[in-house]
Design a protein around this nucleic acid. Structure first.
Length: 300
DNA sequence: CGATTTCCCTGGCCGC
DNA sequence: TGCGGCCAGGGAAATC
């Protein structure tokens, strides 16, 4: 279940490997959620950015000189398209570096006749013969080609809240959102509208760390500061540890993360709270399994 | 309009 | 060993 730290880990790995590469050909599984991958053919990769759990691959027309690419910073400019990739539950990105042939035509022919594993959903052939591969067992992922910044086709990305590490993400924003909704803290944080990038694991961890009940609809100013800080802390931990691998998650090199060893709340139902010893309780919120400590996370 | 529920998918796991 | 049933869950659509 790739959340912000997992996507950021993958982004950081792929950025130096993909920046400047020309996508000469593309293949997709052919279903609506993946078929737009094919529209990336003929574009050059300018940069890799991330918004929440979305990976944004900046593309420019193939006529753009690769030498101009190296000088681009993270500011979005001179992009002709964006390739949007969401990993869903089981999405993985990898690069096959095997030589695809000795000439461009042989490379293309090899790509066209390539055998693909059962869960491959998209592939992009690069001009040096490498192949960027997208594999997604459960097909909860999503690939789209959009005009730069034109996210209306992807409602969650379109209405995405601020990045958790940005100055825009303030305790006041958090507090106002929680107080002005009946949804409860967890459901709100899961919606991506208040802050971007949290999923089931890191939400449970952040609420536990800050001592906020998952269904809280009110929160003091002080606790809003603590929750803001807790969100940043659990995400930083996730990034530092290369992501959380419970079952499926692998980074772009196929390696597991190690943040699963740092979890204090997610998956701990029935076990004693590591902070106070009270038995952790399981519930269901918005169809997602939820764990919290009834003592540390009281409703107020 | 906001909140809640359902659905999409597949593999792993459990009990019989 | 085989098999039915259940669980996991992000986001979009349907429904309340």
């Amino acid at each position: 279940m790739p959340e912000l730290p997992e996507v950021e880990t993958i982004r950081a790995q792929l950025q130096p490997l993909l920046q400047g590469s020309l996508i000469v050909s593309a293949w997709s599984f052919g279903t609506p959620k993946f078929e737009q991958a094919e529209h990336a053919a003929g574009y050059r990769v300018i940069d890799l950015r991330r918004r929440g759990k979305y990976l944004l691959v900046g593309l420019a027309d193939a006529t753009v000189s690769p030498s101009t690419v190296a000088s681009t910073d993270e500011v979005t400019r001179d992009l002709d398209r964006e390739l949007v990739i969401h990993l869903g539950m089981t999405g993985k990105l990898s690069i096959d570096s095997r030589p695809g042939g000795s000439s461009p035509s042989k490379i293309s022919a090899a790509f066209a006749s390539r055998t693909r594993p059962p869960h491959r959903r998209a592939e992009w052939l690069l001009d040096d013969g490498r192949v960027l591969e997208f594999t997604d067992i459960r097909r909860f992922g999503r690939i789209a080609i959009v005009e730069p910044g034109g996210y209306f086709e992807l409602p969650t990305l379109h209405a995405l809240g601020p990045e958790p590490f940005s100055d825009e993400f303030t305790p006041e924003l958090l507090r106002n959102a929680i107080r002005s909704s009946n949804q409860g803290a967890k459901a709100l944080l899961m919606s991506q509208r208040v802050v971007a990038g949290l999923g089931n694991i890191y939400v449970d961890e952040a609420l536990w760390l800050a001592g906020v009940h998952p269904k809280a609809t009110n929160i003091t100013r002080q606790r809003a500061v603590e929750l803001r800080d807790a969100i940043r802390e659990v995400l930083e931990s996730g990034i530092r540890n290369g992501g959380t691998t419970l079952r499926d998650y692998r980074d772009a090199s196929g390696a597991t993360g190690s943040n699963q060893h740092q979890l204090n709340c997610y998956g701990q139902a029935g076990l004693p709270c590591v902070r106070c010893g009270t038995q952790m309780k399981k519930s269901v919120i918005g169809g997602r399994s939820t764990t919290h400590c009834p003592l540390c996370q009281r409703r107020r």
